[in-house]
């Protein structure tokens, strides 16, 4: 897998990779996908996929004893009980 493809994949996956990582993963992926391509030699019939029954529940909030403050305690940055994040565009 060439560097450009991995670079593109890493952008889709939101991972900033170092040059070394790009090279190393490229080599890995070639050998992994090469091994996995044995799947393409297999005769695979189109078997009907038995979908599991859809079990829907009422759209009710159910947060038990979870208090918002406890959840917000895990925030890397917060302000006035709100998450604080960097701005969306440069």
């Amino acid at each position: 897998m060439d560097k450009d493809t991995i670079k593109k994949v890493s952008e889709v996956a939101r991972l900033n990779l170092t040059d070394e990582e790009l090279t190393d993963f490229g080599k890995d992926f070639d050998s992994i996908l090469d091994y996995f391509s044995k799947l393409h030699d297999e005769k695979l019939k189109d078997l009907p996929s038995k979908e599991t029954a859809s079990v829907l529940r009422n759209d009710e909030t159910s947060i038990d004893n979870v208090i918002p403050e406890k959840i917000l305690d895990n925030a890397p940055e917060k302000e006035n009980n709100l998450y604080k994040v960097p701005k969306g565009s440069k």
């Binding site: 996956a13 991972l15 960097p86």
Partner: peptide, 26 residues
């Protein structure tokens, strides 16, 4: 910016985790 913050924050993930995310994305 926001996207870059996400991608930088995910550098905390280990090698095998990144490998699987990349392959799954691909």
């Amino acid at each position: 910016d926001l996207n870059d913050t996400v991608a930088e924050s995910r550098s905390a993930l280990g090698e095998e985790v990144k490998r699987r995310i990349l392959l799954g994305t691909y």
